[in-house]
Simulated assay, not measured.
Amino acid sequence: MEEADKTPLSLIDRLKLKAVTQKSYGGALVEQEAKLTVRNCPNCGAGRAKDEGLTICAYCDFEFLSVRLTDGITIKKENNSN
């Protein structure tokens, strides 16, 4: 063995080695054509970006989605004191 093989790697060399061997967190890159999704307001015709969280038109206050929030299902602890 050579003397260079016995010396530990420097911090910079370890960082370079880690950068080369790491895998992408998001998985493989999927290439798609550029696109624009737009939806017009049925009340006033104003264009808006098709965003899932947008429920009211910014221009005429038309309600796209009526969302009713509830507490959901509540599970209560049973009281088994006999």
Rank of each mutant, 00 (worst) to 15 (best):
D51K: 01
E33S: 10
D13I: 06
L69M: 12
A34P: 05
L54E: 10
M1C: 13
M1D: 15
V38C: 07
A46F: 04
V38Y: 02
A58Y: 12
I73Y: 04
L69I: 08
V30C: 06
D61I: 12
E52D: 15
E3N: 10
T70N: 01
N82A: 15
L69Y: 14
R14C: 07
E78N: 14
F64I: 01
K18A: 15
I56H: 02
F64L: 02
K76R: 15
K77V: 05
A4G: 04
V30S: 13
N79M: 05
T55D: 10
K18I: 14
M1Y: 11
K23I: 08
V20C: 12
D13Y: 07
T37D: 14
L69Q: 13
E3G: 10
I75L: 03
V67K: 05
N82K: 15
N79W: 01
E33V: 13
A46K: 01
L69C: 12
K50A: 15
L29R: 13
A46M: 03
Y59F: 11
I12Q: 09
V30D: 09
N80Y: 04
Q22I: 14
A19Q: 03
S24E: 12
V67S: 02
C57D: 00
G53P: 04
Q32R: 10
L69D: 10
D51T: 07
L15H: 02
D61L: 09
C57Y: 01
E2W: 02
A4Q: 14
K16Q: 12
C44P: 02
Y59L: 09
F64S: 01
A49F: 06
G26I: 01
T37G: 09
N43K: 06
K18G: 07
K76M: 12
A19P: 02
L17K: 10
K76G: 15
K76F: 06
A19M: 06
E2M: 07
L54H: 06
M1G: 15
I73K: 04
V38P: 04
D71T: 05
K18S: 08
